[in-house]
């Protein structure tokens, strides 16, 4: 009996599954998972206070998650290059190959993050605490950051054949978005402080996914400080639900646009 050809979607799922299990077999997912598990337990053990642990966790999430996702993504892409080329020789849609791989990596990273942090917090009585919403938001932004930085690193890898160069760009990307961007941002705020800057400063936040996630979390943790500033744009952004929805929308955009580019480039690229 002839084998029935697989539909493109099924193919993508198959590749996704393959990448996912590949990562689990290589134990990196476990290491990542255990790291977060340990971090969660240590934080709660040392503080014994969910709200303080969440503040520390926020710092970890907006710095470490992008770094790990970037490095992981780029390493995986270069490592599985031979397998990718083998798949490219088959009658398989290119978008299925790259999307499948991407979703496999990003999915396993997200799963490690959510489970690793979720388990200790649940064990320490998160459901009884009123911090549950803050924590959920933290995990959602963490998941978004994983998705965004993995796809950004895939994009870099796809555009750079040279591994060293690609790796360098990826680390630079993280460094730029995590630290340098904010430094430039602050400098421009100080230089142009004679001008009304609230629109600009919110706009600048939108162009950096790390700042964007930080803003989302600030909306929950530091709203009392944010409302201290006089400015109609700020007040509208932070004082109503607008800030939350705009930031969420921008995060989705930050995920979707690089994925679209990944598919677009992979279709045109001559391997």
């Amino acid at each position: 009996m002839p084998l029935r050809p697989l539909q493109p979607n099924q193919l993508m799922l198959k590749i996704l599954k393959y990448s996912f299990y590949d990562l689990i077999r290589s134990r990196w997912s476990y290491v990542y998972f255990l790291f977060y598990l340990l971090l969660g337990f240590v934080l709660l053990f040392l503080n014994n206070d969910v709200s303080k642990a969440i503040i520390t966790l926020m710092n970890v999430i907006i710095i470490l998650v992008p770094l790990i996702s970037t490095i992981f993504g780029i390493m995986y892409f270069y490592n599985s290059k031979e397998f990718t080329e083998l798949l490219l020789a088959q009658p398989v849609k290119r978008s299925s190959i790259f999307l499948g791989q991407y979703l496999g990596v990003a999915g396993s990273l997200t799963l490690s993050l959510v489970l690793g942090l979720g388990i200790p917090f649940v064990l320490y009585g998160l459901f009884k605490s009123d911090a549950i919403f803050d924590f959920t938001l933290l995990l959602v932004t963490g998941a978004f950051l994983t998705l965004i930085f993995t796809v950004l690193s895939f994009n870099i890898a796809l555009s750079n054949e040279n591994k060293i160069k690609g790796f360098g760009y990826a680390v630079l990307l993280w460094l730029f978005l995590a630290v340098i961007y904010d430094g430039l941002f602050l400098m421009s705020l100080i230089i142009f402080k004679e001008y009304p800057l609230d629109g600009f400063s919110l706009g600048a936040t939108m162009f950096n996914p790390i700042d964007l996630s930080r803003t989302l979390i600030l909306l929950k943790l530091d709203i009392s400080a944010l409302l201290g500033y006089t400015g109609a744009v700020f007040k509208k952004f932070f004082g109503t639900d607008q800030g939350f929805f705009v930031s969420m929308f921008m995060l989705v955009l930050w995920t979707v646009l690089p994925i679209w580019r990944l598919i677009y480039i992979s279709k045109k690229k001559d391997f």
């Binding site: 907006i62 602050l186 705020l189 600009f200 790390i210 930080r214 943790l221 500033y229």
Partner: peptide, 17 residues
């Protein structure tokens, strides 16, 4: 810094700060 440039409050809790 926030006293001097109030808009900088959006950089609260960033790594750079």
């Amino acid at each position: 810094i926030v006293n001097k440039t109030p808009e900088a409050i959006v950089l609260l809790r960033s790594l750079f700060m």
